[in-house]
Design a protein around this nucleic acid. Structure first.
Length: 592
RNA sequence: CGGGGAAUAGCGCAGCUUGGUAGCGCGCCACGUUCGGGACGUGGAGGCCGGGAGUUCAAAUCUCCCUUCCCCGACCA
């Protein structure tokens, strides 16, 4: 079927929508692919939906050929399974909760681990049934605090989520590897560049998890890559080693110093270097010699608030995203002035380890950056107005309740694996593979009988690809100044034919004939047959819509040629009309 | 969570200071001219001025509340 632009439900916009920041969002709206209906919720228009379905089908094909079986759950789910897993509360405000007419609680599924676990429990009970791989392509709901970038972060979005069920860890590893390989194939077919990075295993702990990130400055995730070895990780998941203990006997005794007017780390360091009685032999003090103590409030899913103090070297900041990932599902709130007032042990500006820790005057849990090793000496607050203390030695003069590795990661930081240096880059998460282990099977009671007739808890993996996000990511990856530029595998149409003449002459006849021939050859054809629209508008629209091949039937028709442009390569050639179909079909059959 | 800015036709914007019942460009409709890089003329259609409350004879305009969007910040002890 030939799609004629005179009747396709489409209106392109000349101006950028004012609320669209990232290029994919701007171009998808301008090109008439999507329309916003609510914050983080978008309507797919015909062009967008065609692209979406092509992306979806590539994912479906690869999941099917992997041997996973497609099912389809409701989005409307009962509370109980999520209550059992703890996520009814752990998901916090991000969960859409609702009630039916009898005031029974429901939720809109943010992800479906519980439901898949229960489904398998419902039907299977023997190790002989495993391994089992199930998946669905489903609308998910998450009440995001800040939807962003059009399709990049929505409150309603489509995800392919699959789940593996195995009797043991070896099986899980095989399932995981199989999905990981399938994901590599999928992203290659989609024409989406990716890096695979170690990811935060979350509060569950110990599990293996990797993310597929599309490298992109507009991305919300940052990740590190080692310039020497193959180490790569989401910034949230970077773990520096603990610092080995050093002999503390060489340090002088701790000593309190008067340090008026030192509200910042830099002013403190400057004062220490300026005062003869505080100067250090050999080299000046730096911010790295100071121990800064930062306070936060954690808000737990049950609403409980808990203050937390973190001690890190003064030349580093706490990375909020790393901290969030670390304390999940608790949320972080700032420690405001009224909280200082409420805890008399805290002297704002001069907080030191002397007041921190559960056994100490403030009673606040105190965790140290791993760089603060046993035996290391610090300049830090003395818990008195206008005073700091120097030579305060960890293990000799103070202790903490534990360590927490949430300091910011910087370019050129040492690689945890090889000691080389790290580069920080940004990316968009397009896939996530995760060895869940037995968490859900345990709490929901998914057991099967093993060879010996003994019940064994099933071990699971979960694997996600954001389908709607992938559409945006592809647009982000491939667009140029003129508009979208779809890879052949996902473009809404294979060929976009422009009638650049008056519409009632040989140009129209030629275009129509070509359209019919290309359609018969099995290509998806879009024909710009709009009358009264000037050629310039048609060219701009063709470039904006971004189909890979643009055929122009215009002034060349009189000489027996049409112009064929490759939107991906940016090339243009004139081809005899008689040869055009063969030329286009050949280009179409070649790779992206 | 905090601080700014904003919400008026499908899109981009003016009007608000100084209240008197809404305008421009693009797009859309009709006719005519144009036809290879976002053409032109003439005539049209289209808006509960984000929602609610208040002040007033009268509110897009002033006040308050709510919702949504954008930007910046979130700790430097």
């Amino acid at each position: 079927m030939i799609h004629r632009m005179s009747s396709v439900f489409l209106r392109t916009l000349r101006d950028n929508p004012v609320d669209a920041e990232v290029p994919s969002h701007r171009l998808l709206v301008r090109g008439g692919y999507i329309r916003r209906v609510a914050p983080g919720a978008y309507t797919w228009l015909p062009l967008g939906w065609r692209t979406f379905r092509r992306v979806e089908n590539i994912i479906r094909q690869e999941m099917d050929s992997l041997g996973a079986q497609e099912v389809h759950f409701p989005s409307l789910l009962p509370r109980e399974p999520y209550e059992a897993s703890g996520r009814w509360s752990d998901y916090g405000d991000n969960l859409f909760r609702l009630q039916d007419r009898r005031k029974v609680d429901y939720l809109l599924g943010p992800t479906h681990e519980e439901m898949f676990t229960l489904l398998v429990k419902d039907l299977y009970s023997s190790y002989k049934d495993l391994p089992l791989w199930l998946y669905q392509i489903q609308t998910k709901f998450r009440d995001e605090a800040r939807p962003r970038g059009g399709l990049l972060r929505g409150r309603e979005f489509v995800m392919k989520d699959s789940y593996s069920f195995d009797i043991d860890q070896e099986g899980l590893q095989r399932s995981y590897d199989a999905h990981r390989n399938a994901y590599i194939k999928i992203f290659e077919r989609l024409g989406l560049p990716y890096v695979i990075v170690s990811a935060m295993s979350g509060a569950m702990g110990g599990s293996v998890s990797e993310e597929f990130l599309f490298p992109c400055v507009n991305g919300e995730d940052s990740y590190v890559r080692c310039t020497r070895c193959d180490y790569s990780a989401n910034t949230e998941a970077v773990r520096i080693g603990s610092t080995p203990p050093v002999d503390a006997s060489t340090h002088e005794l701790a000593r309190v110093a008067e340090t008026p007017d030192t509200p910042t780390i830099q002013s403190l360091v400057d004062l220490f270097n300026a005062r003869p009685d505080l100067q250090r032999q050999g080299r000046p003090w730096t911010a790295h010699d100071t121990l800064k103590n930062v306070l936060f409030n954690l808000r737990h899913p049950d609403g409980r608030r808990e203050p937390l103090a973190i001690g890190i070297p003064g030349d580093r900041d706490v990375d909020m995203k790393r901290l969030e990932a670390h304390v999940d599902p608790a949320e972080i709130e700032t420690f405001a002035d009224q909280h200082f007032v409420a805890n008399a042990a805290l002297v704002k500006g001069y907080i030191g380890p002397g007041s921190l820790g559960r056994e100490n005057t403030s009673g606040i849990r105190y965790l140290l950056d791993p760089r603060v090793g046993i035996g290391s000496a610090w300049i830090t607050g003395a818990n008195e107005l206008g005073r700091h203390v120097m030579n305060l030695v960890h293990g000799r003069d103070f202790t903490a309740d534990g360590t927490i590795d949430v300091a910011e990661v910087r370019d050129d930081d040492p690689c945890p694996q090889c000691g080389g240096s790290l580069n920080i880059e940004r990316g968009i998460e397009i896939g996530h593979v995760f060895q869940l282990g037995k968490k859900y099977a345990d709490v929901l009671g998914l057991n099967v009988l093993d060879k010996n007739g003994k019940p064994q808890v099933v071990t699971m993996g979960s694997y996600g690809i954001g389908v709607s996000r992938a559409v945006a990511a592809i647009a982000e990856a491939t667009h140029d100044d003129l508009g979208l530029r779809w890879p052949r595998a996902v473009a809404p149409f294979d060929v976009h034919i422009v009638i650049a003449g008056k519409g009632n002459d040989d140009t129209a006849n030629t275009a129509n004939t070509l359209a019919e021939q290309l359609d018969s050859a099995g290509l998806q054809v879009l024909l710009d047959d709009r009358s009264g629209v000037s050629p310039g508008v048609k060219f701009k629209d063709a470039e904006l819509l971004g189909n890979p091949c643009i055929v122009i039937a215009g002034r060349g028709v009189a000489q027996g040629v049409v112009e064929i442009r490759d939107r991906l390569l940016g090339t243009a050639v004139e081809i005899k009309i008689a040869d055009a179909v063969a030329h286009i079909v050949a280009a179409h059959s070649s790779s992206n």
